[in-house]
Simulated assay, not measured.
Amino acid sequence: MVPSVILTAFVLVLPVELPDKTLFATLVLATRFPALPVFTGVATAFGLQVAIAVTAGSLLSLLPEALVSGVVAVLFVVGAVLLWRSAAEGPEDADDAAAREQTSFLRAAAISFGVLFAAEWGDLSQLATAGLAARYEEPLSVFLGSWAALLVVSGLAAFLGRKLADRLPVAVIRRVAAGLFALFAVVAVVETVRTLAG
């Protein structure tokens, strides 16, 4: 484990997920079910999604170094552009749910897992995680940092509820995240050029 890689993954993924659909999906689930089973299901879904993204990024790292850094640069550029363009759109819509349902812990956790597992495919946090896994070749560190960021976001959504959503400066968060993606894209481009020149 490399603490700097864990921190890098955490810092990159956290602002991407704050204004994301998964935050608002978790908020909606927390209005229907108790917070603990929602958090349990969501945390499990995130863990599996991060493991898949790290595996994809690790497989990507088996390719030639210049190709990997070029692909990583493209992933981060795409992420930066998408985040910047979405900054003016405001938070993603989330329907207000009815009053909390009386249901078992396992059922509420399973529903939360299913909703978030389906929602997370192709998400920017997955792109970032795969890119970091390919760049650093530290899959466990990337996994821990990314998953920790996702746990913080889902924990805030599940346990603090609607109050959090009303106070998030979504446009600022998305622009900061876009800046981080752009910075990582520049680093990857420099590495690509250095590899090709060397």
Rank of each mutant, 00 (worst) to 15 (best):
S4I: 15
L7G: 12
L7S: 11
F10Y: 12
L12I: 14
V13G: 01
V16H: 05
L23G: 04
A25C: 12
T26W: 00
T31K: 13
R32G: 10
R32I: 08
R32A: 10
R32S: 13
P34H: 07
A35K: 00
A35S: 10
L36M: 11
T40Q: 07
T44V: 15
A45F: 01
F46A: 07
F46I: 05
F46V: 06
G47C: 03
Q49F: 10
V50C: 03
A51V: 05
A51W: 04
A51Y: 02
A51G: 11
A53E: 01
T55Q: 15
G57M: 02
S58H: 11
S58C: 06
L63W: 13
S69E: 14
G70Y: 07
G70Q: 07
V71M: 12
V72E: 03
L75W: 04
V81W: 08
L82F: 13
R85T: 11
A87K: 06
E89K: 14
G90P: 07
E92K: 12
A94C: 13
D95E: 15
A98P: 13
A99Q: 15
T103W: 07
S104G: 15
F105L: 03
F105G: 02
R107N: 14
R107I: 13
I111W: 07
F117W: 13
F117V: 10
A119R: 04
E120F: 14
D123A: 09
S125T: 12
Q126C: 06
L127S: 12
L127C: 09
T129D: 01
T129I: 08
A130W: 03
A133P: 04
A134S: 08
Y136E: 11
E138P: 05
P139E: 06
L140Y: 14
L140V: 15
V142R: 01
F143G: 02
L144T: 04
A149G: 04
A149I: 02
A149K: 01
A149P: 00
A149T: 02
L151V: 09
L151R: 05
V152D: 00
V152E: 01
S154I: 01
S154W: 01
G155Y: 00
L156N: 02
A157W: 00
A158Q: 00
F159W: 05
L160P: 02
L160H: 08
R162D: 12
K163Q: 15
L164N: 05
L164A: 08
L164I: 14
R167C: 08
L168F: 05
V170I: 10
A171F: 07
A171S: 14
V172Q: 13
V176A: 06
A177K: 00
A178G: 05
A182Y: 03
A185Q: 00
V189P: 03
R194A: 15
T195L: 09
L196W: 10
L196C: 10
L196A: 12
A197K: 12
